[in-house]
């Protein structure tokens, strides 16, 4: 009998841990999304547009989920250091230089990246800022 109670307690606490973990991640995601949106408006929207539609051939759209997925580990580098190479997005080539945003801290980069990869029809989920810091160390 006692064994059952202990097992049940263990099981319940395990479930509780998992549930609360998920909750923490959901809360983090919401935090990142709302802060990321503010950063997006201030730094990205001018060129990439309110709905990530881009600006003709001058700035690529952020609606290409495949591009965002394939280049996931490079996104943080693009955001912080800009881009000075030709990129193919949605089957179109973009050659304009993207400016760097050195003033963004790792946490800002993580938040705006989570916002972009979970808006405009993208749904890549949460990326913790520790992962983004690692990505940033490996920038070319």
């Amino acid at each position: 009998m006692r064994k059952y109670i202990i097992n049940a307690l263990l099981f319940i606490s395990l479930v509780a841990i998992i549930v609360s973990c998920q909750n923490q991640e959901t809360i983090d995601l919401q935090n990142y999304m709302s802060n990321g949106k503010d950063i997006y408006k201030a730094k990205c929207q001018n060129c990439h547009g309110e709905n990530g539609e881009g600006l003709r051939q001058l700035a690529p759209p952020l609606t290409d989920s495949v591009f965002l997925k394939v280049n996931k580990s490079r996104l943080a580098c693009f955001i912080k250091n800009g881009a000075n190479e030709s990129l193919v997005v949605n089957g179109k080539e973009y050659k304009e230089k993207m400016p760097a945003f050195p003033e963004l801290a790792d946490i800002d980069v993580a938040q705006v990246m989570v916002y972009i990869t979970n808006s405009f029809g993208n749904k890549q989920g949460f990326v913790p800022y520790s992962q983004v810091s690692k990505d940033l160390e490996n920038c070319k």
Partner: peptide
């Protein structure tokens, strides 16, 4: 042309 602040929005 290299303006990244208000120009893209203006011309959009």
């Amino acid at each position: 042309t290299s303006c990244t602040t208000i120009c893209p929005t203006m011309h959009r």
